[in-house]
Design a binder for these strands. Structure first.
Lengths: 239, 239
DNA sequence: CGCCCTTTTGAAGAAAATCAAGGGCAGTGG
DNA sequence: CCACTGCCCTTGATTTTCTTCAAAAGGGCG
């Protein structure tokens, strides 16, 4: 993502007029690089910035009392975090870099001013929150069978990767390890391994050397009843 | 909930000035009674109103392809639904009345005008969305062990019931059946029964004849590592 | 009283966790 | 160039958790 990443991203989530775009482009943005495994936003902090992942993958997560980790969202380039800043709320989860990440940070006050100046920006942010919520609901919905949950997650990541132009020939890079997948699906990494094998042997998809390879998108989607509606992808957002 | 329920509710989620309150109180509100088991908001619709549960309990849910139901949120008096209306988005889930519900409905346009007139109202709505999201994350977090998940859900409902003054002597009424609890926790109702027995025999809590009875709140909270922080309850919201 | 809905309990089976041991691959350093 | 090391993936065996199926009991209400 180059230039005014925030403006680009907001435009994707709603219809911005030229004026809106000017406001968005004027947002001051400081850029920070976060190494793999390091936190982008911590728990219990009151973030001063709204952050935008410009490059790399990240994940929202919480640590359970027994020390285990639950990932509650996977973030790709173009995704926001730290929107808690907008109401001065404390973060109830943390965000970690799954690969080296380039993060753009917009001061809370600047963001608030931009929303005041063009309501459409606020609406775009609101819509992004609706998407986050819809994804959480779908994760809950799919937590019944591990095989379908895994397939569905792969479908979700595929659709989102496609939306940002990261898919080539049915493939896209990913830093997701089986342990991360396990923490995201709420199952053990050993079981992820077995479910992945099942998908691979069924000719649906596989994850190999940091690459997701979709063998049969239709069959994969049918298998887990995937519909991308809940992602409000561009082109579908209008109307 | 009497009088201007929406104003009351918004005030709970943020600090509203007298002016804000005037705006909130002027919101036109039509009241509708929904019988137990009937839908309050349907899936796939573009709601025309923002709805507020004034009385009764309701639940957000989705139906899986195999016909099973997943409840993704339980609503008590004072909770919103249909906020998708605010961006003209289609509902990705439905809302069903778990008991007879009295629902107040504010037309989308009126709500939008109110937000324009006093930004604090918008902020209160935004905070309510953050809470919904935090609850979803906690449900994902707790989906590991059924016993703790059940205990945690009871704690959540207790805290929320207490916040609206519905708790007396460590007890509160609830229309939740074991089947509903199962759909909410993602486990079978048979298993809910066994986990309830476990909690009862451990002297933590029980659900009997439509009443949740907390026997030992401290022990119950310790058992499932409950903290009400994520609910942003009044008195904690400030600061 | 009889019906329906909900709860309760048992028994068998499926799904997933845990425990344990190797294996592959990339990067590091001798 | 090769050995070493760390990280991740793979697989098997065992145990725990939860589901499913089935049956019966309780409670509220016409």
């Amino acid at each position: 993502m180059s230039g005014h990443a925030m403006a680009e991203r907001l435009a994707r989530n709603g219809t911005l007029s030229p004026d809106d775009l000017n406001v968005a482009n004027a947002l001051p943005e400081s850029v920070k690089v976060v190494r793999r495994g390091r936190q982008i936003v911590g728990t219990d902090v009151r973030p001063e910035h709204v952050s935008l992942i410009k490059n790399g993958w990240a994940a929202r997560y919480s640590i359970r009392n027994d020390g285990s980790r639950r990932i509650t969202g996977i973030m790709q380039p173009g995704d926001f975090c730290g929107i808690h800043a907008m109401t001065g709320e404390v973060m109830d989860h943390a965000v970690i870099a799954l690969s080296e990440c380039t993060v753009g940070r917009i001061p809370k006050a600047a963001m608030a001013a931009a929303i005041g100046a063009s309501p459409n920006i606020g609406e775009a942010l609101w819509r992004s929150k609706l998407i986050d919520e819809a994804i959480l609901r779908v994760w809950l919905l799919n937590s019944q069978s591990a095989d379908q949950a895994l397939a569905h997650l792969i479908c979700e990541l595929y659709s989102r990767a496609e939306a940002i132009g990261a898919v080539q020939m049915g493939r896209f890079q990913t830093p997701l390890t089986q342990e991360v997948l396990g923490d995201a699906l709420g199952i053990s990494s050993v079981h992820v391994n077995r479910m992945l094998r099942q998908l691979r042997e069924a000719g649906l998809a596989e994850i190999d050397h940091g690459k997701v390879i979709i063998h049969d998108l239709d069959k994969l989607r049918t298998f887990c009843c995937f519909s991308d509606r809940y992602l409000y992808l561009p082109g579908r957002t209008a109307r």
